[in-house]
Design a protein around this nucleic acid. Structure first.
Length: 210
DNA sequence: AAAGAGTCCAACCGCGACCAG
DNA sequence: CCTGGTCGCGGTTGGACTCTT
C-alpha cells in the first residue's frame, strides 16, 4: 500500500503539509485517483455500508468516515456536479426556508445532489442572494391557500410538541431531527404533483416573509 | 505581469443518534 | 439498562482558483 502514498506526495504537496499534523499512518487531504479506484472496488464488493471494513479491506489508510464522505459526495453513481439550474436553486431556497440548514433533507429532494454541494452552494451563492431579496421585498407577504395553512399548522404543532417532549436535553444538535411524527418524505414528496401544484410551496414560504 | 482580495469547494472535525452485545 | 462501536449530519477550514487593481 505504499503506492498511493507516494502518488499522493507527488500529486498534492499541499496535502502533505496538512498531513504532518495528522495522526500517524492515516492519509488525509485530497483523494488520489488510485484511492478512488480502490474505494470503488471495495464498495462494489462490500456495498456502501460498514465503512470501517471498507476502509481496511480496500487497503486505504483512511478512516471509514472519510471513505463514506468521498463516496457520498464524489464517487456515488448518478451524482450531478455543478450547473445547478434555476429550478434547483429556487427549490433549494424554498426548502431552506422550510427546513433551515437541514442539508441532507434538502439534498434528498434534489436527485443527484449532495448535502455538501448544496451546503457549499448555499454558503457561497444563495445566502447573500436571499438576504438581498429579503431586504427588498419586506412586507409583501400575503395570506391564502388553505392547503398551505393546514400543512404548516400540522408541521408547527408537531415541532412544538416534539420540542417540549424533548425538553432541553440537547444543546447543539439539529432540533427535532427526523423525530417529527409526520412523514417528512411524504411531506416533501413532489413526485406525484404536477408543476402547477408546486406553487403551494412557493406560497408557503412567502408567508414567512410577513 | 504581478500582487492582493475574494470566492469556491473538497475534506475534516465534533457531536449526537442509533444499534448490537 | 448500559456501553462501545459505527454512522450520519452540520459547521468549519484552508488550499486552489478567479477576479480586480
Amino acid at each position: 500500500m505504499d503506492d498511493h502514498e507516494s502518488v499522493k506526495e507527488e500529486v498534492n504537496p499541499a496535502v502533505m503539509l496538512k498531513n504532518q499534523s495528522a495522526e500517524k499512518g492515516a492519509n488525509r487531504g485530497s483523494w488520489t485517483d488510485e484511492e478512488d479506484r480502490k474505494l470503488a472496488e471495495a464498495i462494489e464488493i462490500y456495498g456502501p455500508k460498514r465503512w470501517k471494513t471498507i476502509a481496511s479491506k480496500a487497503g486505504l489508510k483512511r478512516c471509514g468516515k472519510s471513505c463514506r464522505l468521498r463516496w457520498m459526495n464524489y464517487l456515488r453513481p448518478n451524482i450531478k456536479r455543478g450547473n445547478i439550474s434555476d429550478q434547483e436553486e429556487d427549490l433549494i431556497v424554498r426548502l431552506h426556508k422550510l427546513l433551515g440548514n437541514r442539508w441532507s433533507l434538502i439534498a434528498g429532494r434534489l436527485p443527484g445532489r449532495t448535502d455538501n454541494e448544496i451546503k457549499n452552494y448555499w454558503n457561497s451563492h444563495l445566502s447573500k442572494k436571499v438576504h438581498q431579496k429579503e431586504k427588498q421585498s419586506k412586507g409583501t407577504a400575503e395570506m391564502g391557500c388553505s392547503r398551505i395553512r393546514k400543512k404548516r399548522k400540522a408541521m408547527m404543532n408537531e415541532v412544538k410538541a416534539d420540542r417540549t417532549r424533548e425538553g432541553n436535553s440537547s444543546s447543539g444538535g439539529a432540533p427535532g431531527d427526523s423525530k417529527l411524527s409526520f412523514d417528512v418524505d411524504d411531506f416533501f414528496d413532489f413526485s406525484n404533483e404536477d408543476p402547477m401544484t408546486l406553487e403551494w410551496i412557493s406560497k408557503f414560504t412567502e408567508m414567512d416573509d410577513g
